[in-house]
């Protein structure tokens, strides 16, 4: 680990722009935040705000061609992205990437994109509206193993820059930086600790996780809760760790020969048809079962054991986007009160 002092953030941005396509979270007129490509000319200030869509689409694309069939054999269609940097990505989303890195470890499409990416994390020093990252060990400070470079805001628009690995060190090579004293790290810890204290009481969530894992949530509770699941796919689309996909074939006969493309696309385990077989047998025909599985996947001990952490990174996106008012806070509260 190397620690530096950074006086001017734009120097780092310009330096990275010379080697990478640079993406950064930008806020539009409506205060909506999204990942946008930056250029040398268009270079917006770095903000510590959660974009509505997480960064998972950068690696696990929403729609992706897997292969083509030319009538004789099947050919892989691997993506070949130019090197890119996600500049200023927050800890919850970084934790999710690290989670998906593990899940998609052997997926060639995911890895083809992931290998090209430099992750520059940004510490949160203020809690966000729906977030509860400290509860699930996903923030507010960037976990070292999840980013190549970490940025931490200091006073007077100054920054602490931490390079956590060789990839980070390589990326900042040639940039004139002052190494700085380790006590800045202590100060960072203090700031982050203070930020953690500012998060609202999370006992609803921790208690609900316990109830969930102690088998205290009844089937009838899930059934009643699931009346409010409209199967919209909003939660699974925005959830940074959700990774289910479907596949389909697209036949292109426009020219004299026929080419068939096979595509994968984001799916949602909350759709009734997700597990339905051609025989109409459906192991998860009941909405209650599907909703239960979703939350079990995020908070169940059996999954914790596999990934060494919860499937939820505490970003709170599902709470905001669920039309049925059964996002994470609402569900956890109801588990505590009624289950």
């Amino acid at each position: 680990m190397e620690i530096y002092h950074l006086d001017d953030l734009s120097l780092l941005q310009q330096h990275l722009l010379a080697q990478y396509q640079l993406y950064q979270v930008v806020k539009n007129d409506d205060k909506q935040c999204s990942w946008q490509q930056q250029t040398k000319e268009r270079n917006e200030p770095l903000i510590a705000e959660l974009p509505q869509s997480s960064a998972k689409d950068f690696f696990f694309a929403e729609h992706e061609n897997l292969l083509i069939f030319n009538g004789e054999y099947f050919q892989e269609t691997l993506p070949t992205p130019a090197p890119f940097v996600l500049f200023g990505i927050l800890s919850c989303d970084l934790t999710a990437i690290s989670y998906q890195d593990q899940f998609f470890k052997d997926d060639p499409y995911y890895q083809a994109r992931r290998q090209q990416c430099l992750l520059v994390g940004l510490d949160c020093i203020k809690p966000c509206q729906q977030g509860f990252c400290p509860t699930v060990d996903a923030g507010p400070g960037v976990r070292e193993h999840t980013a190549d470079i970490i940025l931490h805001p200091l006073e007077n628009h100054q920054w602490l820059l931490i390079s956590t690995n060789d990839k980070g060190t390589e990326a900042i090579k040639g940039l004139s930086l002052k190494t700085c004293h380790w006590h800045f790290l202590t100060q960072r810890d203090l700031t982050l600790h203070q930020c953690e204290q500012e998060f609202t009481d999370d006992s609803d969530i921790t208690q609900a996780i316990d109830k969930l894992n102690n088998g205290e949530v009844s089937d009838s509770f899930w059934q009643q809760l699931a009346v409010q699941c409209l199967g919209c796919s909003g939660c699974t689309t925005l959830c940074p760790t959700c990774s289910c996909y479907g596949t389909r074939s697209i036949t292109d006969e426009s020219e004299d020969k026929k080419v068939i493309t096979q595509q994968r696309f984001w799916d949602s385990c909350l759709y009734e048809g997700f597990q339905r077989e051609a025989s109409f047998h459906n192991p998860s025909a009941e909405a209650g079962k599907r909703v239960q599985r979703f939350w079990q996947h995020k908070f169940g001990n059996e999954f914790f054991a596999e990934f060494n952490r919860h499937g939820c990174v505490g970003c709170g996106r599902c709470e905001q986007t669920c039309p049925g008012v059964i996002g994470v806070h609402s569900v956890m509260k109801r588990i505590n009160n009624n289950a």
């Binding site: 385990c269 192991p283 596999e306």
Partner: peptide
Amino acid sequence: IERRMHCAIGLCGHCYLNE
């Protein structure tokens, strides 16, 4: 056990049976 499957390599998620 029979399940709907898309990938057969533990990625697509369709064939889940508990964990």
